[in-house]
């Protein structure tokens, strides 16, 4: 390889794609989660994020194993089932310049972790929150999850009698500031949404339909590849435009696109497909999700975004220096202050 070639294969951070890789996957071959890991690698590489600047979190389940399959040079913490949000919240306070990415599953988020998920969303903690949603418990070998559709039949479970939880809807109700859905089999859209999510200053919820090839891949079910491919209804074609790029909206056909500027100045450009959808209109987002339920469609794309809402960190006046780097002199109050307290207690 020549020097010239080497230079071409690094991003603006001076890193190659290899610097973003993780350990080899131990998930089933063909698992949607593996495709998602690849797109996380691609998104971070293209965003020039230094891996040491990212912190990975997960709960328990197949999805939650996946953070080891990307960004080996990033710190990561595989926590407890359904309780990754609290873990991430505490950790991200240590250094607010870090970019958090949480990987959860439908069991981890929509069942045991529903409470923590919704409270994380409500607090608008800046981080990317992925749900690798396959409608089934894989690691315990095929039980219904809360996102499984009514009437779904599984080998040992019989027929699911309950309506599914819609993670995007739950996020929206909890006042999420970024709600998107994608499909593991649509790498292009997924990558663009990931890039936008990383640039969002708040909680970015990405519900990714990720078929389970082993326990839940019947052709006619919502979380399968074939169903996903046939019933995916992209809202729009998405292009993420980094802040430093000079590409502007002029590059898109006038009248057919909508821009959303994120906090760091970067933009998401949504190219209109078959409907005139405004992702900043929450009422429209609710209506869209309702309609897609009725039509048994997988609406994918950016469903809702509000980049202007203050994040959780905005409510805390933290020092400029990362909290976890503050020396003792900044943390221990002076002796005289204790004398004053003692005086006040006599």
């Amino acid at each position: 390889m020549t020097d010239q070639n080497q230079r071409q294969q690094v991003n603006a951070a001076g890193l190659s794609r290899a610097d973003y890789r993780g350990a080899p996957s131990t998930l089933c071959q063909g698992c949607g989660h593996n495709g998602i890991a690849s797109q996380i690698v691609a998104a971070c590489y293209e965003l020039d994020i230094v891996p040491e600047q990212v912190v990975k979190f997960s709960g328990i389940g197949c999805s939650s194993k996946s953070p080891t399959y990307f960004l080996s040079r990033s710190f990561g913490f595989n926590g407890l089932h359904g309780r990754m949000p609290s873990l991430a919240l505490g950790a991200l306070f240590a250094d607010t310049s870090l970019k958090g990415i949480g990987v959860s599953g439908d069991g981890d988020t929509a069942s045991i972790g529903m409470g923590q998920f919704k409270h994380l969303v409500r607090r608008n903690l800046p981080m990317v929150y992925l749900v690798e949603n396959n409608g089934v418990y894989g690691l315990t070998k095929g039980q219904f999850s809360a996102t499984a559709e009514r009437g779904l039949e599984l080998k040992r479970q019989g027929i699911n009698p309950f309506l599914p939880v819609d993670i995007c809807l739950e996020a929206l109700v909890a006042n999420a500031t970024f709600v998107a859905r994608s499909f593991a089999g649509d790498p292009k859209q997924l990558k663009e949404l990931l890039k936008a999510a990383f640039s969002h200053n708040g909680i970015a919820v990405l519900d990714i339909i990720s078929p389970c090839v082993t326990f839940h891949n019947k052709e006619n079910t919502l979380h399968s590849y074939t169903y996903g491919k046939e019933h995916e209804e992209p809202l729009h074609e998405i292009a993420y435009v980094p802040a430093r790029d000079e590409i502007t909206v002029e590059d898109f056909e006038e009248g057919s696109s909508r821009e959303v500027t994120l906090h760091d100045g970067s933009m998401i450009v949504l190219k209109k497909l078959n409907q005139d959808y405004d992702p900043t209109n929450k009422a429209a987002a609710y209506a869209l999700l309702e309609e897609s339920h009725r039509n048994q469609e997988l609406i994918t794309g950016l469903i809702y975004v509000d980049p202007a809402v203050p994040s959780m960190f905005d409510a805390y006046h933290l020092p400029e220096t990362a909290l976890n780097r503050l020396p003792e002199k900044d943390l221990r109050p002076i002796r005289q202050s204790l004398e004053e307290i003692n005086q006040s207690l006599i």
């Binding site: 873990l87 991200l92 240590a94 923590q116 976890n324």
Partner: peptide
């Protein structure tokens, strides 16, 4: 939101050096 989260938060914070 509950003690499950309270301990999760402090474990996250302690892990990250706080």
């Amino acid at each position: 939101e509950d003690e499950l989260a309270a301990i999760g938060m402090v474990v996250g914070a302690g892990w990250a050096g706080l």
